[in-house]
Amino acid sequence: MSVDYSKVHEVVIVGSGPAGYTAAIYTARAQLNPVIYEGSVTTGGALMNTTEVENFPGFEDGIMGPDLMDQMRKQALRFGAELVTDDITSMKLDGEIKELTDGMGNTIRAKSVILAMGSAYKELGLENEKRLSGRGVSWCATCDGFFFREQLIAVAGGGDSAMEEANFLTKFATKVVIIHRREELRASKIMAERAKKNPKIEFMFNTQIVDVLGEDKMSGLKLKNTKTGEESVKDFTGLFVAIGHLPRSELVKGQVVTNNDGYVEVEGRSTKTNIKGVFACGDLVDHTYRQAITAAGSGCQAALDAERFLAGH
């Protein structure tokens, strides 16, 4: 890696989903020579664990999530963005010159920083969920579905990701049961309909998962009906958790203002955080839309905001 640690860079971008790469494309085209920290194992962001993306404009027949990210990455490279496959482990954002330290212990300095760290899978928060992860409990259907052939699988969640995971898993599983805490799904109509029409998918509404059962391998779930309070045990050999995401804002908490759920707060329709020269975009900010295209859009905004900030300096 040929990053120059001696100079003060114009802009450093942290994160490499659609928001980070779009910010990289725009700032690179604006001749700001951005350095983008892609993350050591999170390069490409959440879309790396998806299959077909059908709603990203410009791809009439859809595109595989990892391919889309690969193209964005190459597009950023083409305009001279410097890509670093490492994590940022700490940030000092106040003051004119921001200091960021990476996983190798190098410190990079910059006049502006674009935060695009995205979000991580939310866990159910059960003790046995952790213990049995990799032994039946999973967060990535595209990675692990294959290991659940001819099995009875539960999917926790009621949003689009839960529907997508469930649909994908029917390729392997005998039956997939979507377990959702509420009465109705949160998923978009098209995704919900697709799941409802799938003969291998069943639904359990108003149901909360209270424990994951099993010694060395997952064997079942302890469930609770949220209406009646009645508890029951059901046999499952797999559980895919798709109950949503948490913003990856731990590194900047206490420096930039975040809301109660940890999302970074920005000023009005801009991407400006409370710190001058620090901008935030993508799922790190957005708890409402959370789409590849909206993340890309806000990455573009962050780049333009940073460009204006640097021009006024």
Binding site: S40, V41, T42, T43, G44, M48, N49, P66, T85, C140, T142, C143, F146
Partner: peptide, 14 residues
């Protein structure tokens, strides 16, 4: 690991 698994590819160089 397997070919189709994104996180596997990410961790391979490490």
């Amino acid at each position: 690991w397997a070919e189709w698994c994104g996180p596997c590819r990410a961790v391979a160089p490490i």
